Amino acid sequence: MGGKSGESLGTVLVAGAANLAIALAKLIAGLIGGSAAMLSEAAHSAADTVTELLLLVAVRRSGRSADRRHPFGHGKSGFVWAMMAAVATLVGGAGFSVTHGLHEISHGEELSNLTPSYVVLAAAFVIEGVSFLKALSQLRREARRHDVNPLRLVRVTSDTALKAVLFEDAAALVGLLIAAGGLLASQLTGSALWDGVASVTIGLLLLVAALILIGSNLSLLIDQAAPEGMEAGIRAVLLEQPEVADVVELLTMVIGPGAVLVAAKIDFWDEAGAAGLEIACDEVDRRLRDRFPEVEQVFLDPTPTRR
């Protein structure tokens, strides 16, 4: 899990540095032009910077080794900090954008020099694009390793840092296009209404992204099972063992980013004997870990089936 944590850490660092630089540039351009959409984008990037700091904590905390008080590791602490990061996006980005946009729609503040805003939006799109492509590259590598579609992987992955960066960068790119459209429409019509509408739209976009991430982390915190495809593969490995007659019950639980616990009640053939049963359990444990690197804990309970 250390390699994946290091890769996610690099992805988060790139995104955090990009958001900090972009937030300052957007703030200056927004103050010069008097654009609510630009100030909303500045708040968006500032919230994303705070989010990346919290994700850094999430990656570092989840990577800590197991100890006596935490025998299954500290993986779930990563989900807690990642959910706090999503809440920061919800409150800091979405809340400011919607309220500031509504204020401009109702009061109609006058726009002035918008050239710096267009320059900053173009530069921000390039920087956010680089950050998004890095996260997308990591996603594709992991998808190839698991032999699944990248879109499916981003939906079921327990690597919350990677998922957060992907969602936030995608929302940032769309938000930049919305802000540019709002500025252009206001400039062409001479009305600040469209700039305010763009600000509200950016806020709603952030709201959707934040709620998705909050829901994802909440599910992981309340003992989410491994993906169905992985569970089916685990069951198949168990049934392939010659000493196994049946899998009475199979339970899985995500215990951290890229970490899964497997607990199964197994009906072994009576002919296996005590020594054969021990060897079979050891072999099943090894095969599960070889086939699924995410499997970190395996518990097998010999349980006879009523036949």
Rank of each mutant, 00 (worst) to 15 (best):
L39Q: 10
L27C: 12
V12S: 09
H44R: 11
I22E: 01
V50R: 00
V12M: 12
V12W: 03
L24K: 00
A23M: 12
T51G: 15
G34R: 05
H44P: 06
T11H: 07
E7D: 11
G16H: 08
E41M: 06
A36K: 09
M38R: 04
K26M: 14
T11M: 15
L20M: 14
G34S: 08
G34M: 10
L31V: 15
S45C: 14
S35F: 04
E7Y: 12
L13T: 07
S35N: 06
H44Q: 10
L27W: 01
A29S: 11
A47I: 05
V12D: 09
A42D: 02
L24D: 03
A21W: 05
N19L: 14
A25T: 07
A18W: 12
G16M: 14
A37Q: 05
M38N: 09
A15L: 10
S40Y: 00
A15Q: 11
H44S: 07
D48Q: 10
A37S: 14
A21L: 15
S40C: 11
I32G: 05
L56E: 07
A23D: 04
G33S: 15
G33I: 01
G16D: 06
K26S: 04
L56F: 08
G30H: 09
E52N: 14
N19S: 15
G33H: 00
E41H: 09
I22K: 03
T11Y: 03
L20C: 13
V12R: 15
